[in-house]
Computed example of a mutant assay.
Amino acid sequence: MYVLTTISDTAALPPSSFPLPTARALENWLNAKYSDRILPQVGLCVCFHSLISTSEGLIAHGTGLVNVNVTFRLIVWRPFKGEILQGTIIQSDREGGVWLGMDFFEDLQVPPSVLFEPSAFNVEDGKDESEGVWVWRSENADAENGKGYDEYFFDRNEKCLARVEMEVWNDVPPQMTKPAGAVDGEAAVEERKQPYAVQASMMHSGLGPKLWWLGEEELAGEVQEAEEMGEGNAGVGADGVV
């Protein structure tokens, strides 16, 4: 899930960073530039890891900036194919399927074709399409509802497990363009694609909402244990192991 990648760049250190040790000033500059940024074909940058090499600083004419050529390592989030990720359902729609959000990433998509079969998009009477949810209808002749199948819902805010299948990279233009057929004077309102998305599946035993497999009591115990571990790690500093 987390990998180290090596990058070379030219850091432009402002005069305000001169009192700091050079390594610290470079770390601050690199974190400010790369943290929480998507690098094409690399992944989601998390934070600076370590310096490999640096050049002597050259003062830029007229700005006072000190330019330093650096080679360094970054911690990058990029899940591999087949990895199991945990997320929370944040959105469902008829065309796109189910969207999961993690604490730092919300472009984890599970298309309808890789949900449990047979699954259908269900919208209750009187409700808007945006409030619909996907439902897995598992055959069961003894189902209590008398329909010959049990219904399992992909409800919002449910914690789910999903298997990574592929990555989707999009070239994002620096400026938004007007949609086709826009009239003169109309603002550019075209929705921009996410630069990096992950497509996953939920079509194997153990995947999907954890409530299906664990039950309410076991899931509550797991959540409590995770919270206790989080409190225990609250004092880990920046030098802790990632």
Rank of each mutant, 00 (worst) to 15 (best):
residue 1 M to K: 14
residue 1 M to W: 08
residue 2 Y to E: 07
residue 2 Y to V: 14
residue 3 V to K: 13
residue 5 T to W: 12
residue 5 T to V: 15
residue 6 T to E: 14
residue 8 S to K: 13
residue 12 A to K: 15
residue 15 P to E: 02
residue 18 F to N: 06
residue 19 P to H: 04
residue 20 L to C: 04
residue 20 L to Y: 09
residue 20 L to I: 08
residue 22 T to G: 06
residue 23 A to G: 04
residue 23 A to Y: 09
residue 27 E to M: 10
residue 28 N to V: 10
residue 29 W to R: 02
residue 30 L to K: 06
residue 34 Y to I: 13
residue 35 S to Q: 13
residue 35 S to V: 01
residue 37 R to T: 13
residue 42 V to G: 09
residue 44 L to G: 04
residue 44 L to V: 10
residue 45 C to A: 14
residue 45 C to F: 03
residue 45 C to M: 13
residue 47 C to K: 10
residue 49 H to V: 12
residue 49 H to S: 13
residue 50 S to Q: 13
residue 52 I to P: 02
residue 53 S to I: 04
residue 54 T to P: 00
residue 54 T to A: 10
residue 56 E to N: 10
residue 58 L to A: 13
residue 64 G to W: 00
residue 64 G to H: 07
residue 65 L to G: 05
residue 68 V to L: 04
residue 74 L to F: 05
residue 75 I to Q: 08
residue 76 V to Y: 07
residue 77 W to V: 01
residue 77 W to K: 05
residue 78 R to L: 14
residue 82 G to M: 00
residue 83 E to M: 07
residue 85 L to W: 01
residue 91 Q to E: 11
residue 92 S to F: 08
residue 93 D to P: 01
residue 93 D to M: 01
residue 94 R to T: 06
residue 97 G to W: 03
residue 97 G to R: 00
residue 100 L to D: 01
residue 102 M to F: 04
residue 106 E to F: 06
residue 108 L to H: 02
residue 110 V to T: 07
residue 113 S to D: 15
residue 114 V to F: 11
residue 114 V to T: 15
residue 118 P to L: 10
residue 120 A to E: 15
residue 121 F to E: 01
residue 124 E to L: 14
residue 126 G to A: 06
residue 127 K to I: 04
residue 127 K to Y: 05
residue 128 D to H: 07
residue 128 D to A: 12
residue 132 G to L: 02
residue 134 W to H: 03
residue 136 W to S: 08
residue 137 R to M: 14
residue 138 S to C: 15
residue 139 E to G: 09
residue 140 N to C: 06
residue 142 D to I: 00
residue 144 E to P: 03
residue 145 N to L: 06
residue 146 G to A: 05
residue 149 Y to R: 02
residue 149 Y to M: 09
residue 153 F to N: 00
residue 153 F to M: 09
residue 155 D to S: 12
residue 159 K to L: 10
residue 162 A to G: 06
residue 163 R to C: 12
residue 163 R to G: 03
residue 164 V to M: 10
residue 166 M to I: 07
residue 167 E to Q: 11
residue 169 W to Q: 09
residue 170 N to C: 12
residue 171 D to G: 10
residue 173 P to K: 13
residue 175 Q to M: 15
residue 176 M to Y: 01
residue 177 T to S: 15
residue 178 K to C: 09
residue 179 P to E: 03
residue 183 V to Q: 14
residue 184 D to T: 12
residue 187 A to N: 10
residue 189 V to A: 09
residue 193 K to G: 03
residue 197 A to M: 14
residue 198 V to D: 01
residue 198 V to H: 00
residue 200 A to H: 02
residue 200 A to P: 05
residue 203 M to V: 11
residue 203 M to R: 15
residue 204 H to G: 03
residue 204 H to V: 05
residue 205 S to Y: 09
residue 206 G to Y: 07
residue 210 K to D: 04
residue 212 W to C: 05
residue 214 L to E: 07
residue 215 G to Y: 02
residue 215 G to Q: 05
residue 216 E to F: 03
residue 221 G to F: 02
residue 222 E to Q: 11
residue 222 E to L: 13
residue 226 A to N: 08
residue 227 E to W: 08
residue 228 E to T: 11
residue 229 M to R: 13
residue 229 M to T: 01
residue 233 N to E: 14
residue 236 V to F: 12
residue 239 D to G: 06
residue 242 V to W: 14
